[in-house]
């Protein structure tokens, strides 16, 4: 079990870091290899759309991030085994890369 570590959490909105986490399969908060299930934090709208903007995380790291001061009170935690990484298109109304969980665990 990974101990929650938020050493990289300041980068979770950087596009480059998000892409790196998606492809290298590392946690956006601690930069260590992901574990199954993978956790995503998102607002209610993101959960409803099944499209998340924050990078994948360890469950422990995501829970810790949600507890930190300044965390979005709307964030909900979703766990999945796999996800699709979607790069934005030219005329995409959502210009940020996003994640679509494909095998929800919780």
């Amino acid at each position: 079990m990974i101990v929650a570590d938020l050493s990289q959490a300041s980068r979770i909105r950087e596009r480059r870091w998000v892409t790196q986490c998606a492809l290298s399969r590392v946690c956006g908060c601690c930069a260590m290899s992901l574990e199954r299930p993978v956790a995503f934090l998102g607002t209610g709208r993101e959960v409803d759309r099944n499209a998340f903007h924050l990078p994948p995380m360890h469950v422990g790291c995501a829970e810790e991030l949600r507890r930190t001061p300044g965390a979005d009170p709307e964030w909900r935690l979703v766990t999945t085994s796999g996800f699709e990484f979607v790069r934005p298109d030219r005329d995409d109304p959502d210009p940020e890369p996003r994640f679509e969980p494909n095998s929800l665990v919780d």
Binding site: R25, S33, L34, E35, R36, V38, S81, G82, F83, N102, S103, V105
Partner: peptide
């Protein structure tokens, strides 16, 4: 991560 969708704990990218 080609097989992550199977939700198999062993056949998983992590």
């Amino acid at each position: 991560g080609q097989w992550d969708w199977m939700n198999d704990p062993e056949i998983h990218s992590s």
